[in-house]
């Protein structure tokens, strides 16, 4: 596919929309009807959210691993690393402090 036409690209958007819709309906349904509980539910919600974020990145923001100018992609992925350090560090430290008060 050297330069995909309008129709096939629109279909990709619709596919992304369908996937995102499914990944939204499932966790809302789980919580609304109380189908799961506790840790299992929390993990399911988290996994589905990450999956949906990946879907958005792939289908709406058009991030993929092969076609980018790599140096740009690296800088962007680097953000995730730093944010991970900062956010998880914060939760680790503040969580630990909370248990020791």
């Amino acid at each position: 596919m050297s330069d995909p036409d309008h129709r096939s690209e629109a279909r990709l958007y619709l596919a992304g929309f369908g996937l995102a819709l499914t990944l939204t309906l499932v966790p809302f349904g789980l919580v609304h009807w109380g189908l799961m509980q506790g840790k299992a539910l929390a993990i399911t919600i988290a996994v589905l959210a990450v999956a949906q974020i990946v879907v958005h990145l792939r289908f709406f923001l058009h991030i993929d691993l092969s076609r980018q100018k790599r140096e740009d992609l690296q800088l962007i992925l680097f953000t995730v690393l730093l944010l991970g350090i900062m956010a998880f560090g914060t939760l680790w430290i503040m969580g630990n402090l909370a248990t020791r008060m």
Partner: peptide, 13 residues
């Protein structure tokens, strides 16, 4: 389309 992409995300082309 490979090679014609100048930035991450959808390109104008």
């Amino acid at each position: 389309m490979s090679g014609s992409n100048l930035h991450p995300g959808l390109n104008l082309g």
